[in-house]
Design a protein around this nucleic acid. Structure first.
Lengths: 148, 148
DNA sequence: AGAGAATCGTTAACATGTGAAGTGTTGACC
DNA sequence: GGTCAACACTTCACATGTTAACGATTCTCT
């Protein structure tokens, strides 16, 4: 008999998707209120941590594909949350920075976002959250089980 | 001082997103090979488990929003993986079923999909996977911490 | 120097995510 | 039995996901 597929509803991809949906459901009202999309917020958030970054670096850190990043950066620059300049040492590269308006957005949203993080912390417990993150790390880590 | 935001890179939403991306990266080649999208596969997979289902039920089970479900069902019917009829007792409702071609798709893909599930099982260990799913359940479960 | 490969960002084309509004049908209530 | 709210599905508009291909720049190697 052909190997039975795992239970659909409790398969790893479905559970990860549902868990993320459940988490984002808490953040979404805050994002909507600030009139930024989830992805725009990720990029602004990432830009707040560094002096400058290239679209590629942001794409990596935010888990957003380059074509999407192109559009998101355009939006953020248009809305005044980020600025861009080109790298004089490598004209292929673009360097992006957060603007004061971008920083204001981050600081205005921080309290509410932090409160939601705290809520998840309470729900899972600190050790529970840490264990969860560790297991997710295992998934994220390169399998490297290959042979080289 | 304003409350510091959690580490961006290890925040729960980012980790869940990365973990899911890592997992899907393993499945994607199989899906591409079969020429179905991730979401189309989820719906076909869900249809294979039941005699009939409404778009709403599928949307719930597959974590796909109704507008997307409308488009996906249209595609699946066009491609011959599903059929639709309307409920005579409630003309608002549509009833969907998998076709033989849909079942063939599922059984053709099952071995490869199962192999990937097995790989994750090995990486995490059975108890590790179970613990992971339990913690994800905590996130998915209604907070219900409200007061009613 | 110069040809060709590699890199970075972008555009294109299609599928899906997301929130709002629309259509037809059913149910509840007067 | 007629009005109105609720429901199931759809459409619309815009943002993003996904793959492929493209243009400009840089690197490599001869």
């Amino acid at each position: 008999m052909s190997p039975a597929l795992p239970e659909f509803d409790r398969s790893l991809p479905m559970m990860l998707l549902r868990a993320r949906e459940a988490a984002m459901a808490r953040f979404r009202p805050v994002l909507t209120d600030a009139e930024v999309t989830e992805q725009q917020w990720r990029v602004v958030r990432a830009l707040a941590d560094v002096a400058e970054a290239t679209p590629s670096e942001l794409a990596e850190r935010c888990a957003i594909l380059p074509p999407s990043m192109t559009r998101i950066v355009r939006t953020l620059v248009d809305r005044g949350f980020a600025t861009r300049r080109s790298d004089r040492n490598d004209l292929r590269r673009t360097l992006l920075s957060i603007t004061p308006a971008g920083r204001e957005l981050v600081s205005a949203m921080s309290p509410q976002i932090t409160a939601i993080y705290d809520e998840f912390n309470r729900r899972l417990g600190e050790p529970g959250l840490d264990e969860l993150l560790e297991r997710l790390d295992v998934l994220i880590a390169e399998p490297s089980g290959s042979r080289d």
